Each structure stands twice: as structure tokens, then as C-alpha cells.
Simulated assay, not measured.
Amino acid sequence: MALAELVAAIPAQYFWIAGKGRIKPSEPLYAIRILDAETDAVVAQAEADTLEDAIAHALKSLPLEAA
């Protein structure tokens, strides 16, 4: 799935933060956190070697009522 489609799939009640970088060479390059807009609670997060994979993994771990 394309990056724009993945971002569009994040439910509107959430906001997200993505980052690129490593502290150790063995870590994935990208990370994302999806947060509840009302409470700032993290509802899903994931790391992966591509931003697309990180978003896809985070979307899969969203609470069922949000998906």
C-alpha cells in the first residue's frame, strides 16, 4: 500500500508521530506512534525498516473499535 493510503487509513480520532533514526545499528530505521487526540494516550506503535511497514504494523495493532 502506498504511503498516502496508509496515512489516510489512520482513523480521524487519532494523530500520529513518525520518526527516522537509530541509536544502535541493529534497530529498525522508522518508528510511529498513534495517539488518541483527546487523551494523548498511545493506542498503537510500531518500528520497521520502512515507514510504510511501520504504519501498516501500527494500524494492525489499533484497538478493534478504531479499525
Rank of each mutant, 00 (worst) to 15 (best):
D53R: 03
A9I: 04
I32C: 07
T39G: 10
A12M: 02
A2Y: 00
D49H: 12
A66Q: 14
L64N: 11
L62R: 09
E38F: 10
A48E: 13
P63R: 12
S61F: 05
Q45D: 07
A54T: 05
E27L: 06
A44R: 06
A9G: 02
D49Q: 13
T50E: 07
I34H: 11
A58C: 06
D40E: 14
F15E: 12
D49C: 02
L64T: 14
P28L: 05
S26H: 13
A48H: 13
E38T: 12
E38N: 14
E47F: 06
P11A: 05
A4H: 02
Y30I: 01
A67S: 14
E27P: 07
A48W: 05
L29W: 13
L29N: 10
I17A: 03
G21E: 01
K60Q: 14
A58I: 02
D36T: 07
R33M: 14
V43C: 14
G19H: 01
A54Q: 07
V7P: 00
E65Q: 08
H57A: 14
I34D: 07
P28I: 03
D49W: 08
D36R: 06
V7E: 04
A58W: 06
I23K: 00
T39S: 15
S61G: 01
I55G: 04
W16R: 02
A54L: 03
A37L: 10
D40S: 12
S61H: 12
